[in-house]
Computed example of a mutant assay.
Amino acid sequence: MIENEGAGADEAEATRRAAGDAESSRASRGWWDRNADEYQREHGGFLGDDRFVWGPEGLDEADARLLGPAGSLAGRDVLEIGCGAAQCSRWLAGQGARPVALDLSHRQLQHALRIGTGFPLVEADATALPFADGSFDLACSAYGAVPFVADPVRLMREVHRVLRPGGRWVFSVTHPLRWAFPDEPGPEGLSVAASYFDRTPYVEQDETGRAVYVEHHRTLGDRVRDVVAAGFRLTDLVEPEWPAWNTQEWGGWSPLRGHLIPGTAIFVCERDGR
């Protein structure tokens, strides 16, 4: 699932303020339940029904092989976190893997059922994974839950717990550098407008001050420290370049910006063998 460009309900007020675990989780569940239909209508063609895309640049796992070499996925137990309509899990199943697709949003999982699945769908919070220790060989998230949780280390530790020794955890998020720039696809999105070091969450709230959308910023260094604090070893950090074939705009992502500054960061992590 690829992250929305940060738009909320028409009446929502955008601000920067603190937002804890419970408020962030509640806002994310509500936002994705309300907006899943529009999201899938607008982006479903790009995502495909059974394609594994890491971000708006269009980097495809079939080419990138960040989860493992060609042919290595067959028979592997894989957890997709923040799966949306489970497009990535559907591709994994086509490679012979045994995916489990998890999302906080009931409506997103209904879209997964609409497209069709032959694997389990689980509605749960990524910071409290309902699986036994050592249940999976691999875990992945394409713009899924990571940016929407207040405590990313808690999420990472849960992923570490459910992975088997030697397991791999790969996730993509908006490149942290983008937080210093306006979320605009044109020239106005190329000038620094905020401090890269400001970790204050981006919040959209209703007239009562109740959050309806929350996204949390971490610097690149923060993300690395989060991974290490959870017990992982970072083996690669991929910053996809914008390809010539991709002419579409997706929120603040565009060919103009994509050729100049990174839009996505993909972290490839491994659990130690113990």
Rank of each mutant, 00 (worst) to 15 (best):
N4R: 13
N4S: 15
N4E: 14
E11H: 13
E11W: 13
A14N: 09
R16L: 13
A18T: 06
G20V: 11
D21Y: 09
D21Q: 10
S24L: 03
S24P: 08
R26Y: 00
A27N: 09
N35H: 10
Y39W: 10
Y39T: 04
L47H: 14
V53K: 08
W54N: 08
G55A: 10
P56H: 12
E57N: 12
L59R: 12
D60T: 04
D63M: 05
G71A: 00
S72R: 03
G75W: 07
L79P: 05
G82N: 10
G82A: 06
C83N: 02
W91Q: 04
L92D: 09
A93R: 14
A93Q: 15
G94D: 12
A97C: 15
D103H: 08
L104P: 05
Q108E: 09
R114S: 12
I115E: 10
G116D: 04
T117V: 15
T117F: 02
G118N: 13
F119N: 05
V122L: 07
V122E: 06
V122F: 10
E123C: 15
E123H: 11
D125C: 05
A126L: 09
T127N: 06
T127P: 02
F131Y: 14
A132R: 14
A132Y: 04
S135I: 02
A142H: 01
V146N: 09
V149P: 11
R157A: 11
V159G: 06
R161V: 02
V162I: 02
G166K: 04
G166M: 08
R168C: 13
V170F: 06
T174E: 14
A180T: 09
F181P: 10
P182T: 03
E188N: 14
E188L: 05
G189K: 01
A194V: 01
R199E: 10
T200S: 06
V203E: 06
Q205V: 11
Q205M: 14
D206R: 03
D206Y: 07
D206L: 07
E207M: 09
A211Y: 05
Y213S: 11
T219G: 14
T219Y: 12
L220A: 15
G221I: 03
V224R: 14
D226M: 00
V227E: 00
V227F: 02
G231I: 06
F232V: 00
R233L: 14
R233Q: 14
R233H: 15
L237D: 09
V238I: 14
E239K: 06
E241R: 12
W245Q: 11
G251W: 10
G252K: 01
W253N: 10
W253P: 00
S254C: 02
R257I: 03
G258A: 12
H259Q: 15
P262L: 01
G263Q: 02
G263T: 01
G263V: 02
V268D: 11
E270C: 03
R271E: 09
